[in-house]
Simulated scan of single mutants.
Amino acid sequence: MEPFVAKIISCQTRLIIMNIPLRYDPKTKQVQMPPQAEVLVPQVKLEIDQLNTLTSELIAAGTDVPQVPSVENFNKDMSKMIKKLYEGGVQSFKQGKFEDSAKQFTVGIEMISRRHKFESFQGTLQELSLLLMSRTDAFLKTKDYLKAFNDADMLIGMMMCTPENFLRRGVANFFLGNYEAARADYQRGLAFDENNKRLKVELEICLDKILEENGDEL
């Protein structure tokens, strides 16, 4: 069964079970549910929003069936703009303008989120991971550790086997005062790259901090 159709059936099944009335708005061409139901069943609201997004993009495409995602139909103009923002962010980072750098990476990420949902996911993932890694580094420099943690956590979900992402989240955890979580991140990173010098150094610093906090031997 196609994922798009399966999602529609899954959403309809939930709504029937919970007896939630729906309304179709012919002007916006979107399915809507009562505001009170949105609060009670946020997961269903999320699924309806996703369906509305896919439907609107399918209508805008002007075809009954979307094109098969490929390198050829990946939006090249948007790719150029995203690349330009990335390069500008990198340049600002090298100049020590970390806040400006983070802003440019953020704009690039927002542009990626505007790509058509039927475009190549592999291409989108490559762009997003590159910008997220760079923005995490910028947030660490500006000491926005919670934002850095959120980006690094997303990166780990996308790229589980990349030790540098565990390093990023570990550093964020450390400065957020989550020392045990930081230690776990460094150790997991070393499991993928046991010779990573930066991970080893940060792990030693973290272990010393845990000793200092607990006053006990590990």
Results as ranks from 00 to 15, higher is better:
L22T: 14
Q36C: 05
F118K: 00
L15S: 06
V5C: 05
R114D: 07
D64F: 15
Y179K: 13
E119P: 09
R188S: 06
E110S: 08
D49E: 14
N195M: 12
K45C: 05
K83F: 14
A37I: 10
G189S: 03
G96M: 00
D193K: 15
L155P: 06
I20K: 01
N173R: 14
E204K: 14
M160S: 06
L15A: 11
V68H: 13
L176P: 08
M158R: 12
R188F: 11
I8W: 01
P42M: 10
R183Y: 09
R114S: 10
P69K: 01
R188A: 11
R114M: 08
D153Y: 15
L146P: 00
D25V: 11
V90Q: 02
M78V: 07
F121W: 06
V90D: 02
P3L: 08
E2G: 02
D144Q: 15
A60K: 12
G89K: 04
V171W: 01
R23D: 03
I59F: 09
Q36N: 11
K29R: 15
I8L: 04
M158L: 15
C206M: 06
I82P: 07
I16F: 11
D64Q: 12
E213K: 15
K76H: 10
M159E: 09
L207D: 04
A60I: 01
S70Y: 14
I48K: 05
N75K: 06
D216F: 14
N19D: 15
I59N: 00
G89V: 07
S56T: 06
R198M: 09
R183M: 13
M160N: 02
K76C: 01
L146T: 07
E119R: 05
F192Q: 02
M33I: 13
A102I: 04
Q95P: 00
E194F: 06
T106H: 08
G62N: 00
V107H: 04
N195L: 12
N195T: 09
D25S: 13
R169C: 04
G177N: 05
Q50L: 08
Y186S: 02
P34H: 13
L15R: 12
I20S: 02
A60M: 03
M158E: 03
G170H: 10
F139K: 03
K80S: 07
V5E: 05
G89N: 06
I16T: 07
S10I: 01
T136K: 02
A61F: 03
F121T: 03
V201Y: 10
D193M: 10
V44Y: 05
G177L: 08
G215L: 05
D153M: 07
D77F: 10
D193V: 12
Q36R: 10
G215N: 11
T106M: 03
Y24F: 15
N19V: 13
E87V: 05
K197A: 13
H116R: 10
D77M: 07
K141W: 00
P3F: 11
Y186Q: 00
L203E: 04
I20Q: 00
